[in-house]
Design a protein around this nucleic acid. Sequence first.
DNA 1: ATGTCGGTGTCTCACCGA
Length: 257
Amino acid sequence: MKIATYNVNGINGRLPVLLRWLAEARPDVVALQELKAPDTKFPRLALADAGYEAIWHGQSRWNGVALLSRIGAPVETRRGLPGDPDPAQSRYLEAAIGGVLFGALYLPNGNPRPGPKFEYKLRWFDALAAHAATLVASGAPVVLLGDFNVMPTPRDVYKPERWGEDALFVPAVRDAFARLVAQGWTDAVRHLHPDATIYTFWEYFRNAYARDAGLRIDHLLLSPSIAPRLIAAGVDRAVRGWDCSSDHAPVWIALSA
DNA sequence: ATGTCGGTGTCTCACCGA
């Protein structure tokens, strides 16, 4: 089973890029973030034509998450994160597909810091950790995937010294991510490539992609019962160089049957 | 501080969030 996460940064403006990538990469299951579209403007038919059934949780202008599958319709188990301090923001969607539970998330960015946006990020992280603990305790095979808006270690930042005060990298946020993983989750990409420089996001400005001035903020976490099935992982980096691309690239893993 | 995007309403520009 091939699984991917992709922050599309506007699903309608990005539709040609998304469809081209789906046709080339053929992932079985995809989590999307930053739909930036209300539910009525989700491109269900275009995705169905591409072979994907979908569920989505959108809102006008910002946020929004979706799950796509070409191996059977997602069976939704949860819409919204339990305990989200601001449930009006569409940031979590959960479904069973092919015998695996997928928690698709878009964690708050948290900038500017300090301030209410950063406090919201920390509270959201707390709520995610509480829910994730119940998923681990269930023993079910679970993949938690999406844009976590966290670089876990300095290796995940092109110039860590410039990001020390940023809400994506301050110790409180890295600690929150580390505590989450310590519940028993496996950071799939880093697990298979412990020493590689791997980025999933490059800013639009300052020619960041051409300079490879990137960040690794999109992650796939595997619960203990599914982690032994991990056989490959990577980033479809070239997609970031396509015309009209998102500022993120798709990240994927392969699991044995 | 800067830069560049997508989406929306204030609507062919100005804003917000990232």
